[in-house]
Write a protein that binds this DNA or RNA. Structure first.
Length: 568
RNA sequence: CGGGCUGUGGCGCAGCUUGGUUAGCGCGCUUGACUGGGGGUCAAGAGGUCGGGAGUUCGAAUCUCCCCAGCCCGACCA
């Protein structure tokens, strides 16, 4: 294409409100424009990149046997009520009504719809099936941010597997791991798999693919020695043994005037790891207690996963007082009856502990948890901190800030049971089909590549998804230069290279700056200097390295380079 | 949802504290000239409901109130 005819609205200045690098560069480079919070228009350049990302995903899904479909975006409420997620999804779901007052929703994901399609399966001989689509999802995110990284309307590749048993699911899961690894390799993203919480998706296990990135929103605990990596919502670590002394015969009250914090109580003689921290939470309208060791932090998602709570929030100080009789700072679970008490595993078997006495300015010491506290449920609740020991090898774990680039779930038979997705097995017995679901956001991955590949001059796209693989920059629009440019341009096009001819009547500096800003990986510069020797200049965007090439040889050379890079 | 901040030509901003003729600047845009290998120079132009509404006032971009939108932090979130 000829630049002079295209709509590539690059900006001299970066937008003032863009914090994330990808956001600023995609706007400045003329790839995207915001319509309103969380909704972006993809301009020609942006759509080209987006399409190339989608193509890579499509190719890799096809390579593992995926069959592409396209399901509706708008769904009747009934289908979501059938799975029970009409209620559990809460505010994330855009809801609307049609003219007959029927309730509808915009799809946040498509398990329900694919399960409906799958209900037509009737025999194990039809399995396995692997279906996917690249389709818009709508999510009413509380806080869209960072350009394309977190939006309310976005294209996602979501695939769904249907197998006769769990071994089949394992096989499908493994296929996706391979496909995703290939996708991220082709996108040149440093993604790595991590253990994740399945959250509202439910199901058995899930794996996220994370890309280290400052603009990300997830923390991953990673071991540098072995391959352990897990989302902080799921991560565990090995704790040093704590040797407890024998407990007192019974908890002993002692006055702690003015002491409201773990740290203050520590100064008063109770080490933090010998304290029980009691937090009052409101889970789906019920008051519950979460107990962790004094020096530990509660991870809310872990609590949700352990208890199945849908909505969870900390109680207000007044609510805490109403429930336990004291203000935060003197709360405890000793002798508490009638409230659900969930305790972290690190507290199991501990004795001689200190905790609040549910009386302002009073605490108990000598507490034996097994004896004195009616724990209703033991669970892993504590948030792992950087530096704690890896469970499998003991190395200190590090925290890495990441973007979630993909997420794959083993769903099991939950949806199959609700939607009647059953098939007859070899013995003629009706069996629920085992499902998996697998997601990868197209726009988010595009933005993540932008986050990962840029410099002070702008974007540096990998050849695989660059809006154009090569730009021909004509320094001076005289007949001689344009003639040479046209020959090379036609030659490259004939060779199947995605080439952009910058034939704008602008100063060389402007063209160089724009080419670099929009991140075209290779540039052929045509100017009188080199042309006098029958040569053109060839520059690699990433390194800035320039070399002179005979004008008749450059097309073949570039084609070879691009072809190699493209396939990577 | 809580906290902080911001809305002024296409983009980036000043003006607002202390109300006062015609609302400025840079970039971009149009036309012309000179230029021509890293965002050039000169000249002449076009382009603005100052986020919206109500109020105070002789007079509001500026003060007051309400609303809307956007950004950032936190909460939340497949």
């Amino acid at each position: 294409m000829r630049w002079s005819t295209l709509h590539i609205p690059t900006l001299r200045d970066a937008p003032g409100d863009a914090e994330a690098v990808s956001h600023a560069l995609l706007v400045q480079g003329g790839f995207i424009r915001q319509l309103h919070a969380g909704h972006y228009s993809l301009l020609p350049l942006g759509w080209k990149v987006h399409t190339k990302v989608a193509t890579i995903v499509r190719e890799e899904m096809d390579a593992i046997g995926g069959q592409e479909c396209l399901l509706p975006t708008m769904h009747p409420a009934g289908i979501w009520q059938k799975s029970g997620r009409w209620d559990t999804m809460g505010e994330i779901m855009f809801r609307l009504k049609d003219r007959r007052d029927n309730e509808m929703a915009l799809g946040i994901t498509h398990e329900e719809i694919f399960a409906t399609v799958a209900a037509e399966l009737s025999s194990y001989k039809q399995l396995p099936q692997l279906w996917y689509q690249i389709q818009l999802k709508f999510r009413d995110e509380a806080r869209p941010k960072s350009g394309l990284l977190r939006v309310r309307e976005f294209a996602m590749k979501d695939s769904y597997s249907f197998t006769i048993d769990w071994d089949g699911l394992d096989e499908m899961f493994e296929r996706h791991r391979v496909a995703y690894a290939r996708i991220f390799e082709r996108l040149q993203l440093a993604a790595f798999p991590v253990e994740a919480s399945s959250g509202a998706m439910g199901g058995d296990t899930s794996t996220e693919f994370m890309v280290p990135c400052a603009a990300g929103e997830d923390d991953v605990l990673r071991c540098s020695t072995c391959d352990y990596a897990a989302n902080v919502e799921k991560a565990t670590s090995a704790l040093a043994e704590v040797a407890d002394e024998a407990p007192l015969p019974e908890p002993e009250r002692f006055a702690t005037p003015g002491i409201r914090t773990i740290a203050a109580l520590e100064e008063a003689g109770a080490p933090a790891d010998r304290q029980i921290k009691t937090m009052v939470l409101v889970a789906d309208e019920a008051t519950v207690l979460a107990l962790v060791r004094g020096d530990h932090q509660l991870n809310v998602q872990k609590f949700v996963d352990a208890t199945g709570a849908i909505e969870l929030r900390p109680a207000t100080p007044d609510e805490a007082k109403a429930a336990l009789g004291a203000m935060p700072g003197s709360l405890g679970a000793v002798g508490v009856d009638g409230l659900t008490i969930v305790a972290d595993e690190a507290l199991r078997g501990r004795t001689n502990m200190t905790t609040g006495a549910n009386d302002d300015d009073w605490h108990y010491r000598g507490v034996d948890i097994a004896r004195d506290i009616k724990v209703g449920q033991w669970a892993d609740l504590r948030e792992v901190q950087a530096g704690e020991a890896c469970m499998s090898c003991g190395t200190a774990l590090e925290v890495v800030r990441c973007v979630e680039a993909g997420h794959i779930f083993k769903l099991g038979t939950v949806f199959a049971e609700k939607f009647g997705v059953t098939v007859a097995d070899a013995d003629g017995q009706e069996k629920p089909v085992v499902m998996g679901s697998y997601g990868i956001g197209i726009g988010r991955n595009m933005a993540t590549v932008a986050e990962s590949h840029n410099d002070e001059r702008g974007l540096i796209w990998p050849v695989s998804i660059a809006p154009y693989e090569v730009v021909i920059t004509v320094v001076k629009l005289d007949d001689n230069s344009m003639a040479a440019a046209d020959v090379i341009y036609s030659d490259l096009k004939a060779r199947g290279v995605d080439v952009l001819l910058d034939d704008r009547d602008a100063r060389a500096g402007v063209k160089f700056a724009d080419a670099e800003l929009i991140g075209i990986p290779y540039r052929i510069t045509i100017g009188p200097k080199a042309l006098a020797d029958g040569e053109v200049e060839f520059t690699e965007r990433r390194s800035g390295d320039m070399q002179r090439v005979a004008k008749g040889a450059v097309a073949e050379m570039v084609t070879d380079l691009v072809t190699t890079q493209r396939k990577l």
